Amino acid sequence: MASSALQNDSDDEDFGEAFKRYKYKNAFSEDKWEQEFDKIPMFMKTAPEEIDPMEYPELACLQAIIHDEDRSPEEQAKSLKDEGNAFFKEKNYLKAIVAYTAALKRNCGDQELDTVLLTNRAAAHFHIGNMRSALNDTTAAKKIKPKHLKALIRGAQCCIELCNFVAAIQWCEDGLNAHPSDKKLQELRAAADKQKRAADRDSRKAKVKEKKLHNEKEALMAAIKERGIKLRQSAKPRQSGSDEDEETSDMLANLSLDGLNSHEATGAQVFLDEHGSMHWPVLFLYPEHQQSDFISAFSESSSFSEHFAVMFGEELPPWDVDRKYHLQNLQVFFEDEETEVLYKLNPETTLLCVLQHKRFFVKAGTPNFIILVNGSPFYKQYLTGRKIRTL
């Protein structure tokens, strides 16, 4: 017990020493603590005859609360405006908005004061990015005082931020009619005009690009129909009675490879080259090793063996640990999921020949094929119990 008491005494001494060394940041000064203490309303001996809100902020606040009902709506509004201005100077824009809003709710009837309040609140909204609210306030201020310079300037700035350059120019024109020599309005007018011309130029370019893409898609649709290629959005069989042309048209809007979980495939889609030849994104699947290869532009006139010669020529893939995926050993299949039939292809067959087969359906814009090693144990196991047909 004695040891514990000694320890406690030591702790108290340490705390006391630390308390002496470190001072409270917001403490009264040692020299003028009595004068500062006397500024707190609860401890004042006598109230000052004139109250400066900067010198006696707590007292000013209390008196404002006590006598608020005795003051006219105009006086209350002005007081709240001053409060909002103080918050604004501190860049506390949210509190400034609250103060200006409270002032406007006093409905004092002073149009000049209401215009200032609306313009000030618009400025606070502007600084925190509430451009639509800022524009609403400047519009309201302009209705009260059509020639109010700050409202006209802030309205033009809001419209520029909202990319409504036509409206911005109109705000500047209205302002310059009332204040023809104002440099800020002149600068905003020039900036709005410049950005409007740039936006118009970009819009024209976008329309030209959109028209070009539309024409390319129309040409692609015509080429697909002409070749008799059938599209499917998914592996599900086409519902009876559905219109195949309509289904083909719907699919053309979704020919990207999103959902394949391959960064190489993302964004690739079928296209026509300058010679009118069609190129498809194609997926090769290797079920034995759960691997795949993606070809972003497989020409319809190319054969499977041409791609195999590149992919399995001098160097075999690293996942082929048994080194058996040689060009002469590869066998290609496609599956008709509706009839559950595997079609065996000659590797010398062109892609177009396969795409035109009556039972081949391009799913999600990407033809896919199964690649096996002919005669391997997995080959025999994979085909066991399946219906096989040769193309």
Score class of each variant (00 low, 15 high):
H179C: 00
K212W: 03
V282I: 07
F284H: 13
Y286T: 07
R232D: 04
M221H: 13
A206M: 09
V282N: 05
K211S: 03
L188F: 15
S256Q: 10
Q170R: 11
V208W: 00
Q269W: 07
L231T: 02
K211V: 00
R189W: 05
G175P: 05
K183V: 10
Q170G: 00
H179M: 04
K184N: 07
A265L: 12
L213K: 05
Q269V: 03
K212Y: 00
L257Y: 05
V166F: 09
D243T: 03
P180D: 02
A190H: 14
A235I: 05
R201L: 06
I224W: 01
Q170N: 10
N215L: 09
K209P: 02
E264I: 12
L185N: 13
D200P: 10
L220R: 07
R189V: 06
F284N: 09
K194M: 14
I224M: 08
R189P: 00
V282C: 09
V208R: 02
P287V: 04
G267M: 06
L285F: 02
K236I: 07
A198Y: 08
K212S: 01
L213D: 12
A178E: 08
E226W: 02
G259M: 13
I160T: 15
F271T: 04
E210G: 08
N164Y: 06
G241L: 14
C158Y: 09
G276S: 07
K183C: 12
Q291C: 13
A167I: 11
A253D: 15
W171V: 02
S277M: 08
L283C: 14
R197F: 01
C158M: 07
A222E: 15
H179Y: 05
M221T: 12
L188V: 10
N177L: 12
V270L: 08
T248Y: 06
A167V: 12
S181D: 14
L185A: 14
D243Q: 10
L257C: 15
C163A: 01
H289M: 10
K184L: 02
L162W: 13
A265F: 13
D245R: 05
H275P: 00
Q291H: 14
S277H: 14
A206I: 04
G267R: 04
S256Y: 04
C159N: 13
P287E: 09
C172S: 04
A167P: 00
L176E: 15
A190L: 13
D243I: 01
I229P: 10
E173S: 09
D193S: 14
C172W: 06
L213T: 06
P180G: 04
K205R: 10
C163R: 07
D258P: 00
M221D: 02
N164M: 11
I224P: 08
A190F: 11
D200N: 11
L285P: 08
L213G: 02
H214D: 03
F271G: 02
L162C: 12
L272Q: 03
I169D: 15
G241D: 10
R197N: 09
P237C: 05
D193C: 11
I169P: 05
L231R: 00
G175V: 09
K217P: 01
A168I: 12
